[in-house]
């Protein structure tokens, strides 16, 4: 018996501890991918300080911040800033209000409400580029069902994305269609996680519904509202897929947001330097936003998981 025991505990192999190295070993592959991505990022910063046009390699040279100075004095750049700002504010604003409204409608946990909220997620799961194609088909001047519907309302010659006056409206509409469910689902999760006691107390005291909404619901929902809004701001200011698939930034430069413009500078005008400078400006904006976002996000995460 005891010899058997000896034998078997010897099966517990002697093995030095690798605890100190283990975390590095485990995260090393992910770290390497990190580094692989960081290299082009640094290159982009480097390019943005150069005059660099692929079509004119002879003119390449280091010009410090000349590129940025050119950019900031270029009305096209300010057009890009303006278009991006309008797009971002319009989409996030509408999505926030609409998403909150729908979340409030679906607040109670019931089979029907859950079914509706799942159905509403479908647009969000549609690739944004494909969503643009869908709306393009529906707004086609020849047979588009939306063009036909709007003509029934007496509006003829409504040319959706092909008209500079309505192009912004059209892409915002598509963005709202795709991303409102994002707001809705996050705010719904937030609403449903609120403690019921304050609401029960308010009902017992006969507090009017409007007062409950503004003084109890909204303040308690604020962390979710802030996180969802920042999340959408970060994505919306970088929107590319919907706009590119719909109009490639046109008509004219009415939809020339940051990333679309950087893309065209790069591939159409082979202007690497300008393109890189544009992206650096966008990066600075998103970096600042994402720092605010991560703080909010971590708070919510701690609430969901205990410790971060």
């Amino acid at each position: 018996m005891s010899s058997v025991l000896q034998d078997h505990s010897a099966a517990l192999r002697r093995r030095p501890r690798l605890t100190a190295w283990l975390p590095y070993l485990l995260s090393l592959p992910a770290l390497l991918v990190c580094v692989g991505i960081l290299v082009p990022f640094i290159t982009a910063a480097w390019y943005s300080l150069q005059r660099y046009n692929l079509a004119m390699p002879m003119t390449r040279g280091f010009i410090w911040f000349g590129q940025y100075i050119d950019l900031f004095t270029d009305p096209d750049f300010w057009n890009t800033v303006q278009v991006s700002a309008i797009y971002t504010i319009a989409t996030v604003g509408i999505e926030l209000l609409l998403g909150l409204g729908i979340a409030l409608l679906l607040r109670e946990r019931s089979r029907f409400n859950n079914l509706v909220s799942v159905a509403l997620l479908l647009p969000l799961m549609t690739a944004p580029a494909i969503a643009s194609l869908m709306w393009k088909l529906m707004t086609n001047p020849n047979f588009g069902v939306l063009s036909w519907l709007i003509s029934l309302l007496g509006v003829h010659d409504f040319r959706w994305a092909s008209d500079p006056r309505t192009a912004m409206f059209t892409v915002v509409l598509v963005d709202v269609w795709v991303y409102t469910p994002f707001m809705m689902i996050l705010l719904l999760a937030g609403l449903r996680s609120l403690p019921p006691q304050p609401f029960e107390a308010a009902r017992l005291d006969g507090v009017p519904a409007r007062f409950v909404f503004f003084r109890i619901t909204l303040p308690m929902l604020t962390p979710y509202l802030v996180t969802a809004t920042l999340f959408r701001l970060l994505d919306s200011i970088q929107q590319f897929d919907i706009i590119y698939a719909m109009t490639q930034g046109g008509p004219g430069d009415s939809l020339m947001v940051f990333q679309v413009r950087a893309y065209l500078e790069f591939f159409q005008y082979t202007n690497v330097g300008t393109s890189a400078a544009l992206m650096m400006v966008l990066w600075a904006i998103t970096y600042a936003l994402s720092n605010v976002f991560v703080k909010q996000w971590l708070k919510l995460r701690e609430r969901a998981h205990g410790t971060a």
Partner: peptide, 9 residues
């Protein structure tokens, strides 16, 4: 002392 928990019996 230098072994992991699995080897300490």
């Amino acid at each position: 002392s230098v072994l992991g928990p699995e080897a300490r019996d």
